[in-house]
Design a protein around this nucleic acid. Structure first.
Lengths: 199, 199
DNA sequence: TGTACATCAGTGAACGCGCGTTCACTGATGTAC
DNA sequence: TGTACATCAGTGAACGCGCGTTCACTGATGTAC
């Protein structure tokens, strides 16, 4: 039962979307092809009509979910610098897992697995991270353009580190403290970076 | 061929040590019992004379490797505050993977897997993290004791986030930039925290 | 426009493989007398 | 101190299971005439 080209494209897209969520929720290695296909309303055999291997899907899922994070950040930036900065900061309040959020980003949700992933996947992750830095530089309102890239990198490193730690820690009080202390200090840094703009 | 109590204890210790390295290098899920036992010079069947399950070994390996990080940090602190701070900072220069280093810590090497680990393992990781914070507070030379914990948490979050990111990124230039920019900014913060001590 | 046929998305059984775990067995150790 | 026996660390075959991947098949789609 061959499907129309449009249906085929939609199916492929659906598989990637389902995979993004599954990898984010359960990890890459812990997620099976059959599980993904089943969640997409298909049987496992059809997978290889769309992808050459699981690794190829992992790479594509990584690329697409990084794009989602980037688009989501850009969309927030449409509403102004304040909204953009609040968008970045929001992750550190709830440690959100939703798509488009830093917390839903594969860099946080599957970080240590990505560090050991194949070259295609790491390429996708690196490319996405690089683009995220560029968006921050353009919309972050950093006073000193010479240090903007470093500031953006620092903010992302600290945010992602705090989110990862907060998910490991089983004591809710300490877990939230990690998010809050990191958010507080990054907000202080940002205030200073923008104060510089007025000077 | 029963072994003496001393030999048995040594074997158990060796299994844990081998496991720490294997989990750190290849990840938890990707490392099999047979692989660990073989690296310890044994066959896989004997594993269950020492541990009830793989999960139990994971939890113990997590606890022991966190202790190694903590002891290593305390040892550096013996040589004075400067040496201690340089010890923490060192990780951000080379992103080292050695035992006792933050980079060799399960929090960095297997971060996203730990976030989904069972309660025993997360307990061990949380406990270790908590103790690491305590060591930093005691030896970090923070001027304001009220904010020392927050400072320590922030430094660890940023350091771990940067190390994880630097291992994902495949472009060596950007990878090093992430470590360097994070190190530079944390050094600036520390200088300020100690300046406060003199005031 | 209608017909014949090649294409190929999706199915579901099957593949080899490695996993965590179990178990009967071996034989040196530790213990009770 | 010497002997008899229970213990149990380690071996290696075997277990069921789920994995990624393959394949013969189905039948609707897209194409060539």
């Amino acid at each position: 039962m061959k499907k129309s080209k449009m249906e085929t494209a939609e199916t492929r897209k659906r598989i990637v979307e389902v995979a993004i969520r599954a990898f984010r929720d359960h990890g890459i290695r812990a997620t099976g092809i059959a599980e993904i296909m089943s969640a997409a309303g298909l049987t496992h055999g059809g997978f290889y009509r769309h992808f050459a291997s699981k690794d190829q899907l992992v790479a594509e899922a990584c690329a697409v979910s990084m794009e989602m994070v980037i688009h989501s950040a850009e969309a927030a930036a449409e509403e102004g610098q304040e909204a953009f900065l609040r968008h970045i900061e929001t992750f550190l309040s709830g440690g959100e897992f939703r798509e488009g959020c830093l917390g839903g980003s594969p860099l946080v949700a599957t970080g240590s697995e990505l560090a050991r992933a194949d070259s295609e996947t790491r390429r996708a992750a690196s490319q996405g991270f690089s683009e995220l830095i560029d968006v921050m530089i353009r919309k972050g309102g950093f006073a000193d353009t010479a240090t903007a890239k470093g500031e953006a990198i620092f903010i992302l490193s600290a945010t992602m580190g705090a989110m990862n730690l907060s998910r490991i820690i089983d004591d809710p009080t300490l877990s939230e403290l990690v998010l809050n202390e990191t958010r507080k200090r990054l907000a202080g840094l940002r205030a200073k970076a923008r104060q510089g703009a007025l000077a």
